[in-house]
Design a protein around this nucleic acid. Structure first.
Lengths: 210, 210
DNA sequence: CCTCCATTCGACCACCCTGGTCAACTTAAA
DNA sequence: TTTAAGTTGACCAGGGTGGTCGAATGGAGG
């Protein structure tokens, strides 16, 4: 939609943010265009001047979100780090940074990925598929497997770390819910998180050969 | 509500289940009494014959859920097991069993606990507080701390296990979403889960003294 | 100054759903 | 046959829905 793209940045930001949050919280059907225009501070008519209807707005948001995640997050992951746990440190730190700078996009996406996307246009579906593949590869490519201890299943150690990351992230989101982004002492949580991963290094990696 | 309590079991079950699911999925405000009566297969009038209004129905569901979790789950946790990981095995197995037998209650409760409960009557609030305290004690009371290895923070090992449990549970819920309860090969997941915990025993507990 | 057109607004539309009521009906017991 | 409890769904006023459109605004070009 050229009309929307050429808008001044600030207004664009307000409309995108309001729309992403509304769809994230309510889902497609129940999201209210009235709420969106109220939150974005524009007249009702403008939304349908920029986007021809609710569905087209939604598709625009999906594309925008997938692109943002690709550009801001995935494309910046450092796959030169062969130590799995060290890579997880870097990946997670980057993820949180990008998350806090793009709250609306991430919240919209996390509900999007859980929802039924089968109704989306082909172009968006393949864009999503590519994102999945990239994300998977970036996490596991060129990992040095010899670091792990050998008396238990390496796959299980791998997965335990994954589940731990998921659980920790969720607790973090719950704890920070409602706080303003600026008020969050980011480094404090990074430090604590790294300490946990260091414990996993001691317990999951082979002992240092002296 | 005496009217409702003395109903035949089957009808009671249908109404409870329909209500719990509706409130769980939509939240209090957006939950529709029309949907509930349709799903429960009763006339609109009956719901307001049993419960004087929407709010009273909701309060009844809260109390019912708290009571169910207390009776079916918490009161059956075995606190004689001093080995933390072994206790987690027992607790989790019991939790899953009860979860599958009371899907509606657990789904309602998990949204309830995340929501703002400050508007609830005092009686329900203190009932909830008691549940929290009990749950905490049952998980940590009389644990044998000497089993853990001593070269890393015991608290961190504790928490990592907690986060792992949370992450694993969430993945399981996602994987099983949409499947009918009967179709689930419960034991398969229990077995896999226990294997993970055994890995944690090897890595987090002190080596056997020979 | 006027003209023109892109931009902006919000009142308005027909439609749908809401929590709750109530007159009418059925059932079952006395 | 009488009485009361149980049950129904049409109905209500109120509010929200996605989307439209006539009118107002503002700035550029003549």
């Amino acid at each position: 939609m050229k009309k929307f793209e050429t808008l001044e940045e600030e207004k664009k930001r307000r409309i995108l943010e309001a729309s992403l949050f509304e769809f994230a919280e309510e889902g497609y059907e129940k999201a209210s265009t009235n709420n969106i225009v109220k939150e974005a501070g524009i007249g009702k008519g403008m939304l349908f001047y920029y986007f021809k209807n609710k569905k087209q707005l939604y598709h625009y948001l999906v594309e925008y979100s997938l692109r943002t995640i690709q550009e801001q997050y995935f494309s910046r992951i450092d796959t030169d780090e062969p130590d799995f746990i060290e890579r997880m440190k870097k990946v997670t730190r980057l993820k949180w940074e990008v998350y806090l700078e793009n709250l609306a996009v991430f919240q919209f996406s996390s509900t999007l990925f859980l929802s039924d996307m089968s109704g989306l246009p082909e172009r968006l579906l393949s864009q999503y598929k590519k994102l999945q593949e990239d994300g998977f590869a970036l996490l596991y490519k060129d990992i040095d497997l010899t670091l792990f201890r050998k008396d238990v299943s390496r796959d299980k150690l791998f997965h335990i770390i994954q589940y731990f990351l998921g659980g920790y992230e969720e607790r973090l989101k719950n704890e920070l819910k409602g706080q303003s982004v600026q008020a969050i002492d980011f480094e404090k949580y990074v430090k604590e998180f790294f300490e946990y991963l260091d414990v996993l290094k001691v317990t999951f990696y082979e002992e240092e050969r002296t």
